[in-house]
Amino acid sequence: MELPETIRRRLEDFSRTVLFDQSRTQSLTKENGAFLAHDKRVLSSLHLQMSLYFNMWFFPLWWISEIVMLQLKYPALPDYYKFILVTVLILMTLIEAIRLFLGYAGNLQEKVPELAGFWLLSILLQFPLILFQLFNEAILIQPLERGVHIVLAIFILTQALSGFVALRDMVRHTESQFHLRQFD
């Protein structure tokens, strides 16, 4: 008497998961100081995730204060700075939304392309834009603006550093898994 196909498949999956994966994880091989064979380590960065979480809650406060400060100083600005500041605000809002999404997806799901996109957006776009707003005195920086720009710059900088470390670790782990699969 044969088991139904769905029950047989579930039992096979269960036995493969419980019996074989435990034996594989117990017989880890150590190469170059790192455990490589069928490694079940969590590669997500806690520091990066905490920074992304607090940044997600801080960004609306930054955005509201930026809108209020822009509205207050708008009449005193030259026309070209009016255009530049509105453009920078729109760009930073879009980039920050995409950057935070990629950071969450890349870190929590341990996906290298998303985390690399997050890191590149942080370094190449968001950090220079926040530095422009922080150090360009011609845009009539207000004290509230300076404070929120400093906090956002610190978030971006710490996320870039911890994102780099997390990305490096994920790439090394993926590379070691690739090399191990060559022998299986």
Score class of each variant (00 low, 15 high):
Lys82Ser: 00
Ile84Tyr: 14
Ile84Val: 15
Leu85Tyr: 07
Val86Ser: 15
Val88Ser: 12
Leu89Gly: 07
Ile90Pro: 08
Met92Val: 08
Met92Phe: 07
Thr93Ser: 14
Leu94Asp: 01
Leu94Gly: 04
Ile95Thr: 12
Ile95Cys: 11
Glu96Ile: 01
Ala97Asp: 00
Ala97Tyr: 06
Ala97Val: 15
Ala97Leu: 12
Ala97Gln: 04
Ile98Glu: 08
Arg99Asn: 04
Leu100Asp: 02
Phe101Val: 00
Leu102Trp: 00
Leu102Tyr: 03
Tyr104Trp: 15
Tyr104Glu: 13
Tyr104Lys: 14
Ala105Asp: 14
Gly106Lys: 06
Gly106Leu: 01
Asn107Cys: 00
Asn107Met: 00
Leu108Asn: 15
Leu108Ser: 14
Gln109Ala: 14
Gln109Tyr: 14
Lys111Gln: 13
Lys111His: 15
Val112Lys: 00
Val112Pro: 00
Val112Met: 02
Pro113Thr: 02
Glu114Val: 02
Leu115Ala: 05
Ala116Glu: 13
Ala116Leu: 10
Gly117Cys: 08
Phe118Tyr: 05
Phe118Ile: 00
Trp119Gln: 14
Trp119Ser: 14
Ser122His: 04
Ile123Arg: 13
Ile123Tyr: 07
Leu124Ile: 13
Leu125Glu: 00
Leu125Met: 05
Leu125Pro: 02
Ile130Glu: 08
Ile130Val: 14
Leu131Ile: 10
Phe132Lys: 05
Gln133Arg: 12
Phe135Lys: 11
Asn136Asp: 13
Glu137Arg: 12
Ala138Met: 06
Ile139Val: 09
Leu140Asn: 05
Ile141Arg: 07
Pro143Ala: 03
Pro143Arg: 03
Leu144Gln: 09
Leu144His: 03
Glu145Leu: 03
Glu145Ile: 03
Arg146His: 09
Arg146Ala: 10
Arg146Met: 10
Gly147His: 06
Gly147Glu: 11
Gly147Asn: 14
Val148Lys: 09
Val148Asp: 07
Val148Trp: 03
Val148Thr: 10
His149Met: 10
Ile150Tyr: 09
Ile150Met: 04
Val151Arg: 09
Ala153Val: 01
Ile154Arg: 00
Phe155Ser: 06
Phe155His: 11
Leu157Thr: 09
Thr158Lys: 09
Thr158Leu: 13
Ala160Ser: 15
Ala160Asp: 02
Leu161Asp: 06
Leu161Tyr: 14
Ser162Val: 07
Ser162Met: 09
Gly163Val: 01
Gly163Phe: 00
Phe164Lys: 11
Phe164Ile: 05
Phe164Gln: 11
Val165His: 11
Val165Asn: 10
Ala166Met: 00
Ala166Lys: 01
Ala166Ile: 03
